[in-house]
Design a protein around this nucleic acid. Structure first.
Length: 306
DNA sequence: AACCGACTCAACCGCCTGCCT
DNA sequence: TAGGCAGGCGGTTGAGTCGGT
């Protein structure tokens, strides 16, 4: 049985709001507030709209001090950086951009910013491959620079890190959790063998990140085991990792782990026999093998998986 | 001028969460 | 403690607009 609707769908008007409806809603809320009840508000003010629709209209369009369109480079940067750090939690992202609504940011990301970012990343990836196949060598510093350049744009100081720019201490409302995720990377040391990437993992950060994103109890054991495994040098093994060089969809960006990402790009470029990137890992902890989908806390795919 | 595909963005849908009883 | 309900949120839709042919 489905959920009961919040209002009588047949009795409410849908579609674009008229200027008259806007005026009624705006003047009422400005005088009386919402009364902490959106559902009953349409009846109180005499418009045939769903309460949720009123709430959305007010928050996204009528509320004072809203900005529409014309996103600045700085806003672009904050949106990109937060997206690749915390994912599509638009309300949190919007809270960092005064005057912007989550809906606006979501639309802007989906229609423009994502494409902009992808085109830049694709370009950087090709530069990586060009270095490898034309010169037969790669340099980790040039790689880092490429990665950095993708997000910093042309006018950014080259020695300013992603962290420096995004996690600005002046942004006081920036969630501590997100700051900690960046300050204390989940993935620590990193090494490469053919078809294997080995790295250590900060269990507390990983579990916290995983819970944050998935609200899943599946890593409870991981979280609790972390406290009991203090001092154990456990590691995850990211196996079967490879890339199909004709198709970049499997590339993953790892914010906050810029060096790791740069190395990963290098290793991909250096290993033409690698076939696919898998982000499943096995963990050896207290003599038990635990399987993890490590993509959950490694980071988010920037390329749409079709 | 007409058509058509791409793009934009306001609005809707339905799920999840937290509060209240 | 459980159930109901409203608010909040992210994903999706579709009407309107734009630009190319």
């Amino acid at each position: 049985m489905g959920r009961a609707p919040c209002c009588d769908k047949t009795a409410v008007k849908k579609g674009p709001w008229s200027p008259e409806e806007d005026a009624v809603l705006k003047s009422y809320i400005e005088k009386h507030g919402t009364g902490n009840n959106w559902i009953s508000l349409p009846q109180r003010i005499g418009i045939k709209r769903c309460g949720k629709s009123c709430r959305l209209r007010w928050l996204n369009y009528l509320r004072p001090n809203l900005k529409h369109g014309g996103f600045t480079d700085e806003e672009d940067y904050i949106i990109c950086s937060l997206y690749i750090t915390i994912g599509s939690r638009w309300s949190i992202i919007a809270s960092q951009l005064p005057g912007r609504t989550d809906n606006d940011i979501k639309n802007y990301w989906n229609t423009r910013l994502k494409k902009k970012l992808l085109s830049k990343q694709g370009k950087a990836f090709h530069q990586q491959l060009d270095v490898k196949f034309e010169r037969g060598t790669t340099s980790s510093s040039s790689s880092s620079q490429n990665q950095s350049q993708m997000f910093h744009g042309e006018n950014t100081k080259p020695n300013q890190t992603l962290y420096d720019q995004v996690v600005d201490p002046s942004i006081t409302s920036f969630a501590m959790e997100e700051q900690n995720m960046i300050k204390n990377p989940i993935l620590e040391s990193f090494s490469w063998e053919p078809n294997k990437v080995l790295f250590d993992i900060d269990h507390d950060a990983a579990a916290s990140s995983y819970h944050h994103h998935h609200s899943s109890p599946s890593l409870n054991s991981m979280s609790s085991s972390s406290s009991s495994s203090t001092g154990i040098n456990s590691s995850l093994q990211m196996s079967n990792y490879s890339v199909n060089q004709s198709d970049q969809r499997d590339m993953f960006f790892m914010t906050g782990f810029e060096n790791l990402q740069a190395e990963l790009f290098n290793e991909i470029a250096n290993n033409i026999n690698t076939q696919a990137i898998g982000l499943h890992g096995t963990e050896m902890l207290n003599n038990n093998y635990l399987d993890h989908d490590i993509s959950s806390f490694v980071d988010y795919p920037l390329y749409d998986i079709e």
